[in-house]
Design a protein around this nucleic acid. Structure first.
Lengths: 239, 239
DNA sequence: TAGTGGTCTAGACCACCCC
DNA sequence: GGGTGGTCTAGACCACTAT
């Protein structure tokens, strides 16, 4: 029953395991997850801890819970799911979703007029920038520019993010877990650049988000600009 | 220590009280809320229950929590806040936000091609429809059409919603509390109708949301279409 | 070091759903 | 009636922040 610094909390382990089981199809939409009591026994823990995990999976849109019945796996939706905590790969089957790195991670200065206040640490260490295009069924749907402080993520520029989840990478390599975040959301006209990237006519309406993600390490905050063509897909958010 | 059917759970009471204190300005942005131990004592409950309330206030964007320090009240933002659980009035100071009822609540059939599956109960009882326009600083920013099953909400059509929160009305009159929900989000061109309502040029980009809100009564689900002009304002979401 | 939030235990009673 | 999730108790130990 010992615990060392890098051990994940039990509830996080439960989240990861159940999420994997759902995404992999072991539990299909409509299926019931094991009950709280079963999970408590299986993981040698108590209902409080199990409930913490199930609550978060509910927030993330993987399950919904029904009093007297159980935890039910949600329908997979034709959405992108990036508005839930764990990133785009969770929302659509990964067969149909490809990620193309348009700018490889590189060190640079923080952009001027950056819309978020930066800490002294963030200013001091500068930022790492990269951009990705998400392609669903051959269609470029989402363009995403990401900024992270160049601190506590050694050799990040060497990592190949192609078709990998940024969040999984951060978790696997640096024990960084996304804990919470905030979005600002706008509807804008496609600029020349965005229309080229998303292969959409100029001035078409584009969904634009500015995103700030907080992690378990208070110095590490992930900032993104997102541009989404919602002609054929849409964003979905659970809360 | 008795409990009757209409008693709110303690954690809900805590949420309501703390939210009121924050919105009213008793706690200002940056202030610390009382500690979990203080609140446990004050409400004669345990930390688990207090934490349940504080977790939800965090999700709703009223506070953020800092290990070793406390629960800190968030900055008020120039957002609309409808993407958090409790509706638009919580996001902007109510001085600047007016609600105009463009269609008073009336009974009608569910629209054809309604994008969500309806239960037998919902189909049987038909729906109540109304629409509202949210005006911030004299500017029409948001148009909202709402559909609720005409079930368990007697005399709803008699209630005056002008400048009142729908959620507060449902809570006060019918003990209905919003528990969770989901959004689909699109960026669209303003139709002729929407452009008139929001006083914006036709074809301007408009943020469009289809919203489904689940309540503590499983038969009562609130459906909304939202249209938001994000030229001068934007939507903000915490998670 | 004192106080805070983060995680967790080992129970309890209740309301709700299904059989 | 038996199992489920919803709420709650009364503790515990740990990690983090501030001083």
């Amino acid at each position: 029953m010992k615990k060392n610094k890098t051990t994940k909390p039990i509830y996080q382990l439960l989240i990861d395991d159940l999420k994997k089981s759902i995404v992999s199809g072991r539990y299909k939409p409509g299926d019931l997850l094991p009950s709280e009591n079963d999970l408590s026994r299986e993981y040698n823990t108590t209902r409080v801890t199990v409930r913490q995990a199930l609550k978060e999976l509910t927030n993330m849109g993987y399950i919904f819970r029904q009093h007297g019945k159980g935890s039910i796996v949600c329908e997979a939706e034709k959405g992108l799911g990036i508005l839930s905590l764990k990133g785009v790969t969770a929302g659509v089957g990964s067969e149909n979703l490809k990620t193309f790195i348009s700018d490889k991670p590189r060190k640079m200065e923080w952009p001027e007029n950056f819309p978020y206040d930066l800490s002294e640490t963030e200013k001091k260490y500068g930022c790492i920038y990269f951009s990705r295009i998400r392609i669903v069924n051959e269609l470029p749907v989402l363009y995403e520019e990401t900024f992270i402080a160049n601190y506590n993520i050694p050799k990040f520029t060497n990592i190949n993010l192609e078709n990998k989840s940024l969040f999984k990478t951060l978790s696997d390599h640096y024990d960084i877990e996304i804990k919470s975040g905030e979005h600002g959301i706008w509807s804008i006209k496609a600029t020349t650049e965005i229309s080229k990237i998303l292969k959409t006519p100029k001035h078409n309406p584009i969904l634009h988000l500015k995103r700030k993600l907080y992690t378990n390490k208070s110095e590490t905050i992930i900032y993104s600009y997102l541009y989404c063509n919602t002609t054929d897909y849409y964003l979905k958010d659970y809360f």
